[in-house]
């Protein structure tokens, strides 16, 4: 039986709470896909979460033009991707719990 709970927890804790070049606040906001103040970074993060295939060179260029370094963009994108996958996963786990009356 596969159990990714420990590995997922370690991943999430590292990208949100560990050292990074983007602020913890910005990484958390990207993960939650809410509360990002800067518009280019917010747009990029929203696209990563909801329509990653539509991210363009221009989206990344605009995030850079906002003053973010490539390392900061890398971290923000990772947090946005893991955050959305986490919401999907948690939703599905809750649905499974409801279906099996474990919830």
């Amino acid at each position: 039986m596969t159990n990714i709970s420990q590995q997922r927890k370690a991943l999430t804790e590292r990208i949100l709470d560990g050292a990074g070049t983007a602020s913890q606040r910005e990484r958390q906001a990207a993960f939650e896909n809410t509360g990002l103040a800067e518009s280019a970074v917010r747009m990029l993060s929203q696209k990563v979460a909801m329509q990653a295939g539509a991210v363009s060179d221009q989206d990344v260029a605009m995030a850079k033009a906002s003053g973010r370094t490539e390392d900061q963009i890398f971290e923000i994108v990772v947090c946005a991707a893991v955050g959305q996958s986490t919401r999907q996963y948690d939703s599905a786990r809750a649905a499974l719990d409801a279906a099996t009356s474990r919830g």
């Binding site: 990714i4 997922r8 990563v48 979460a49 990653a52 994108v77 990772v78 946005a80 991707a81 893991v82 959305q84 996958s85 986490t86 999907q88 996963y89 599905a92």
Partner: peptide, 11 residues
């Protein structure tokens, strides 16, 4: 599997 690849696809 869904969690892993929904993350990786986005990246």
């Amino acid at each position: 599997v869904g969690f892993a690849f929904n993350t990786i696809n986005r990246l």
